Simulated assay, not measured.
Amino acid sequence: MAVDRRKLIVEAASKSFALFGYKATTMDQVAKIANVGKGTIYTFFANKEQLFQEIMNNLIHEMKMVAEEVVDPNLRFFDNLNRVLDKLLDFREEHELAIKLSQEVREINTQMALEGVQQIEKAVVGYIQQQVKKAVDKGEIKPCNPEITAFVMMKLFIALTSDWKKTHEPLEKSQVAEMLQFYLQEGLAP
């Protein structure tokens, strides 16, 4: 059975980026972890940036699959929204690369790490945007700008699940779901 060197390189690079971050990962480290010569990496990837982008593409694909797993076509839009956002936040908080990139951005603000974090956010907003469009088409929600709406939904969810607990007692998942429904579905008007 032939060894898939490209796959070995991508797996090794994923480990290295997750352990050391973007800035501290070198092609020498990746070659060592993959047990290939450094030149072998360059037969598949022109540079570290290209290799990193391959890993980010895989991460985003994995996130979309995780989101799709929890969507239930029999549920209403807001019920699915809460399930998807909850699952994606769990994924992001448990995935070593996402954690390391966020840490690297906070500590040393590496440009490529920042771009990686932004790609993750853009993918989440893009996924929610598609769901918003479907909900508008079904008449489940009012016509709106799907991209802005998706952005606000994601940011509100992050504010309730992550930012709130920095200075308050964390909200239970059911409380987050209630708040999303209250602010996004019912609104503040009497």
Score class of each variant (00 low, 15 high):
residue 5 R to N: 15
residue 7 K to S: 14
residue 7 K to H: 12
residue 8 L to T: 03
residue 13 A to Q: 03
residue 16 S to L: 09
residue 18 A to F: 06
residue 19 L to H: 09
residue 20 F to I: 01
residue 21 G to S: 07
residue 21 G to V: 06
residue 22 Y to H: 14
residue 22 Y to C: 05
residue 23 K to F: 11
residue 25 T to Q: 08
residue 29 Q to S: 09
residue 31 A to Q: 05
residue 31 A to H: 05
residue 33 I to R: 10
residue 34 A to N: 07
residue 36 V to L: 09
residue 37 G to Q: 14
residue 42 Y to S: 11
residue 45 F to V: 07
residue 46 A to G: 10
residue 47 N to H: 10
residue 51 L to G: 04
residue 52 F to W: 13
residue 55 I to C: 04
residue 58 N to G: 15
residue 61 H to N: 12
residue 63 M to N: 03
residue 64 K to A: 07
residue 66 V to S: 13
residue 66 V to L: 09
residue 68 E to K: 11
residue 72 D to R: 08
residue 73 P to C: 02
residue 73 P to Q: 10
residue 76 R to F: 06
residue 77 F to W: 08
residue 78 F to I: 00
residue 78 F to G: 00
residue 78 F to L: 04
residue 82 N to A: 11
residue 82 N to E: 09
residue 82 N to F: 13
residue 90 D to E: 15
residue 93 E to I: 06
residue 94 E to T: 12
residue 94 E to W: 02
residue 98 A to D: 06
residue 101 L to H: 02
residue 103 Q to S: 13
residue 104 E to S: 10
residue 106 R to F: 13
residue 108 I to C: 09
residue 115 E to V: 09
residue 115 E to L: 15
residue 120 I to M: 13
residue 122 K to L: 10
residue 124 V to H: 01
residue 127 Y to E: 01
residue 136 V to R: 00
residue 138 K to S: 07
residue 141 I to A: 05
residue 149 T to M: 00
residue 149 T to Q: 02
residue 152 V to Q: 10
residue 153 M to C: 12
residue 154 M to T: 02
residue 156 L to Y: 00
residue 156 L to G: 06
residue 159 A to G: 14
residue 171 L to W: 03
residue 175 Q to R: 05
residue 175 Q to L: 03
residue 179 M to W: 07
residue 180 L to K: 05
residue 181 Q to H: 12
residue 184 L to P: 04
residue 185 Q to W: 01
residue 186 E to K: 13
residue 189 A to S: 13
residue 190 P to Y: 08
residue 190 P to S: 11
residue 190 P to D: 13
